[in-house]
Simulated assay, not measured.
Amino acid sequence: MKLIIGNKNYSSWSLRAWLALKQSGLSFEELIVNIGGEEWASVRRESGEIMPSGKVPVLWDGETVIWDSFAILEYLADKVGRERFWPKDDTARGMALSMVAEMHSSYQALRSQCPMNVRKRFEGVRISDEAKADIVRILQLWAEARARFGKGGPFLFGTFGAADVFYAPVVSRFITYGIAVPGFARVYMEAVWEHEWMQAWIEGAEDERWVIEQYEAAPRT
């Protein structure tokens, strides 16, 4: 298997696919492209067979190609067993699926105003009411998942799974922009941040020399 990803410091969707592969337990080769470099436009034009969507992440498994993070996770779940990613309980699994789908399609204000930047730390940031509403919604979901289904461990549904894979970049954003969160959320964020796979990704991000200036400025409301 080969996984094509973008900069570890900035590419939130790449992080999700990478964590999904780690969760699968399958071996894979990672190929990193600098999505902020001058060569990126030409890479996208010339990589139709390698990156059909012109975006990252992309997973190659022999002749099979998957080019969306949610699709990658689902492909891997079918390949290794869905219980490795999703709760066994029907009710818990239904909520986990809904949370992942919502993360995949929503929170545009938070995404645009607070892009992932693993290395950066901001203080006293001001964000829009729309981004604040996104944060409140996420915290509500985290609280419900933890209260109802989190008794088996420190993650959203107890053990590390698909929901944590998809909300890991949100944890990174909250840390980067100094978002104030309640105690239960801090404990959850620490569990994600200190996870060995997340620490490996952070180390890779810190070792990168690429800088995308547009993601280095404080949010503008």
Rank of each mutant, 00 (worst) to 15 (best):
G36L: 03
G36R: 00
G37Y: 05
A41D: 12
A41P: 02
V43S: 06
V43T: 15
R44P: 04
R45W: 00
R45N: 07
R45S: 07
E46L: 13
S47H: 06
G48Q: 04
G48F: 05
E49L: 13
E49A: 14
E49F: 11
M51H: 11
P52T: 06
P52H: 11
G54A: 06
G54R: 02
G54K: 07
K55S: 04
V56W: 02
L59D: 11
D61E: 12
D61M: 00
G62N: 05
G62Q: 07
E63W: 01
T64N: 13
V65P: 01
V65T: 09
I66H: 05
I66V: 15
W67A: 15
D68L: 08
D68P: 06
D68I: 06
S69H: 09
F70Q: 08
A71F: 13
A71H: 13
L73P: 00
E74D: 13
Y75Q: 12
L76V: 03
A77L: 04
K79I: 02
K79G: 03
V80C: 07
G81S: 05
G81L: 05
G81Y: 09
R82I: 14
R82H: 03
E83G: 01
E83R: 10
F85E: 08
K88M: 10
D89R: 09
D90L: 08
A92F: 02
R93M: 05
R93Y: 03
G94A: 01
G94S: 07
G94N: 10
M95A: 08
S98N: 09
V100F: 08
A101I: 04
A101S: 13
A101V: 12
E102P: 00
E102R: 15
M103D: 09
M103I: 01
M103Y: 03
H104Y: 12
Y107I: 04
Y107L: 10
Y107M: 08
Q108P: 01
Q108E: 15
R111L: 11
Q113F: 02
C114S: 08
C114M: 15
P115F: 03
M116K: 00
N117I: 00
N117A: 14
V118C: 07
V118G: 04
V118D: 04
R119L: 06
K120E: 14
K120S: 10
F122D: 08
F122E: 13
G124H: 09
G124Y: 06
G124N: 15
V125G: 04
I127H: 05
S128C: 04
D129T: 09
E130D: 15
E130M: 13
E130I: 04
A131N: 06
K132G: 02
A133S: 13
D134I: 10
R137M: 07
R137Y: 08
R137C: 11
R137N: 14
L139C: 12
Q140E: 15
